[in-house]
């Protein structure tokens, strides 16, 4: 009954049918789940999309078995530093990347299987006071590190064994970079969002890391986080989320926005807003806890323990997963290759939904 009361109401009624439950996996280790993701994994000539789950002390790889069943392939046990998040590496096979730390990220490690030694190993890629990290196509990782005096922004090219094979320093903006996104279809273009609510654009290759442009997002929507970027007709479109959406209620409570920037002039205009669904009358206004974007779909865990899904180009909420009987949703991640939505609970239960 409580879960029902906490479920946000969609204008056209509940559209849970847009999400079809495909399978469930449950980590029975009893440790608290901190993240979930997917990775391509090839073994014995068979390449499959596997699920990765992380608790504070370990990371597990799950392979699809019979329809709607998952089997644990292996577990990497990490050291003293807790795992904070999994860093997905698009189009990479047999390599998992994780961020570890206490309150903030202190280390980035790659996890892999060595057939020579038949061991599941991990390797340190980066350490420091890491403010943002993202995995890009072609086995690249980009991160921002704050030191007392300055900020270091660096791109790392990873080898097949998860070690860095090349590094390129990018010119840092004055403000701390809070998120990165590659510009789709433009291998050398990278964007980032900053703590002062700007979008920055870099040119990235092994020779240069020029900062090309800094463009302000606007003060109405604080703490914008970039998820996707693409260039079309001379404009740079950036998909932003607003983790403090609840606090900017007067602006329509946007969880996600698509903003068009003209990189030549630095001017911008909002193209589409995806607002938080209205909460039932008399209940506390819903807040955005964390989210993820894949293609034109956004998903976020709300403060009610529900997961909401939006069509970012139309601006509408298309589905809501109410909190399950066993508890609230804590994680919402899009699986790679359009395989669907992963919704996770703290007890290690993960549901895969087709969208």
């Amino acid at each position: 009954d409580e879960a029902e009361q906490l479920t946000p109401v969609l204008p056209d009624g509940l559209k849970e049918e847009n999400l079809q439950l495909v399978s469930e996996l449950k980590d029975s280790s009893g440790s608290c789940a901190v993240d979930v993701s997917t990775v391509w994994w090839e073994a014995a000539g068979c390449k499959e999309l596997c699920v990765v789950t992380a608790s504070e002390s370990s990371v597990s790889l799950w392979e699809p078995l019979a329809p709607s069943h998952w089997g644990k392939v292996c577990t990497w046990h990490l050291g003293e530093i807790p795992v904070i998040q999994i860093v997905p590496l698009p189009d990479t096979c047999n390599l998992v990347c994780v961020a570890l730390g206490e309150l903030e990220i202190g280390e980035i490690r790659t996890l892999l299987y060595s057939s020579e030694t038949d061991l599941f190993k991990h390797s340190l890629v980066k350490s420091g006071n890491i403010k943002a990290v993202v995995g890009l196509k072609d086995q690249r990782l980009v991160s921002s590190i704050r030191t007392l005096q300055e900020q270091q922004v660096e791109m790392v090219w990873l080898s097949g064994t998860g070690r860095s094979k090349d590094r390129q320093t990018l010119m840092p903006p004055e403000e701390t970079v809070t998120a990165f996104a590659e510009v789709e279809g433009m291998r050398e273009a990278l964007v980032g969002t900053t703590a002062a609510n700007s979008v920055v654009v870099w040119s990235v290759n092994l020779k240069t890391g020029q900062l090309l442009r800094k463009m302000h997002v606007g003060y109405s929507y604080p703490a914008s986080i970039c998820h996707r970027a693409y260039s079309d007709s001379g404009l740079l479109f950036v998909v932003l989320s607003h983790p403090h959406a609840k606090e900017s209620e007067s602006c329509g409570n946007p969880a996600f926005r698509v903003v068009a920037f003209n990189p030549r002039t630095g001017r911008s205009r909002g193209v589409m807003f995806s607002s938080l669904p209205p909460s039932p009358a008399g209940r506390q206004v819903l807040g955005y806890l964390e989210g993820d974007v894949w293609d034109t779909a956004g998903a976020a865990v709300l403060s009610s323990g529900a997961v909401a899904v939006w069509d970012l180009l139309r601006g509408g909420c298309t589905a809501v997963l109410p909190p399950g009987p066993a508890g609230c949703w804590a994680l919402a991640r899009w699986a790679m290759a359009g395989a669907g939505l992963l919704a996770g609970q703290r007890d290690g239960t993960v549901h895969l939904y087709r969208y």
């Binding site: 273009a189 020029q210 990189p263």
Partner: peptide, 23 residues
Amino acid sequence: CSESDLGPISLNWFEELSTEAPP
């Protein structure tokens, strides 16, 4: 979006900004 709100648009913005930016 049009040029009236966003200013002159260039299809080659990335190449142009890369050439103009200091190395």
